[in-house]
């Protein structure tokens, strides 16, 4: 697992393709939101929705690449021979989680600066983003594996990831809107705990499903 994580890290530091794609997409989306909300202050619920939609699309654009690239470069078979499917899944999902958390931190800071929003519950915001990004990463890694061997893999991975991840986004919005000052704190913490449970379920169930599809 650590070897797989290290391999992804080295490949990313060489090419920076994933971080660049996610970063560019996220910055463009936040700037678009800023243009759309120019001249008025976003309410907490709407701001939370926009932030999570941006996170969702930056995840589905950038994260499945770690598996799609293996098939495109023809290195998938070598990986199948050298590593157990569970180790591959956890390595790639952990790498995706790290990348997604970095993207989320940068994106949220930019979002807060441009929209001038007040954070009422910083801890809730941080924990829900961390749990949400972990859940999104595991889900996207699984969807990437499902689409990796299809002829139209890039489009298919986005098409199957979005409906799969939308329930997580709903929970994330529930938590973040409270962090932005809309709604009761108990509801926000409920959403945050839901996200954490989702992340645990996806990380523990994902490797078994991954093992079923990660073969020739």
């Amino acid at each position: 697992m650590w070897a797989c994580l290290r391999k992804e890290w080295l490949a990313e530091t060489r090419s920076r393709a994933g971080v660049l794609a996610a970063g560019l997409f996220s910055v463009s989306a936040v700037v678009a939101v800023w243009f759309a909300s120019f001249g008025f202050r976003l309410p907490g619920g709407l701001a939370a929705g926009l932030l999570w939609v941006t996170l969702l699309f930056s995840a589905v654009v950038a994260l499945p690449r770690v598996l799609l690239a293996e098939e495109e470069n023809g290195t998938g078979d070598l990986l199948r021979q050298w590593a157990r499917p569970h180790a591959v899944f956890w390595g790639k999902a952990l790498f995706n989680s790290l990348q997604m958390i970095l993207t989320a931190v940068a994106l949220t800071v930019l979002f807060l600066v441009l929209t001038d929003l007040q954070i009422r519950h910083p801890l809730l915001l941080a924990l829900s983003l961390a749990a949400g990004c972990t859940a999104l990463s595991a889900g996207t890694t699984l969807c990437g594996a499902l689409a990796a061997q299809a002829p139209n893999r890039a489009a298919l991975s986005v098409a199957v990831s979005v409906p799969f991840l939308l329930p997580m986004v709903a929970l994330g919005i529930t938590a973040v809107r409270v962090a932005f000052g809309q709604g009761e704190p108990s509801g926000g913490w409920q959403g945050c705990v839901g996200l954490a449970c989702y992340a645990v379920a996806t990380f523990s169930g994902g490797p078994h499903l991954f093992a079923a599809v990660w073969r020739r």
């Binding site: 409906p163 799969f164 329930p167 709903a170 989702y198 996806t202 079923a212």
Partner: peptide, 22 residues
Amino acid sequence: AYAVGSLLPNLFLIFVFPRLPQ
């Protein structure tokens, strides 16, 4: 694999989400 993986989102969407107090 997708059908099994989507069991959790489906359970959440059908039984949990509409009953959330928020």
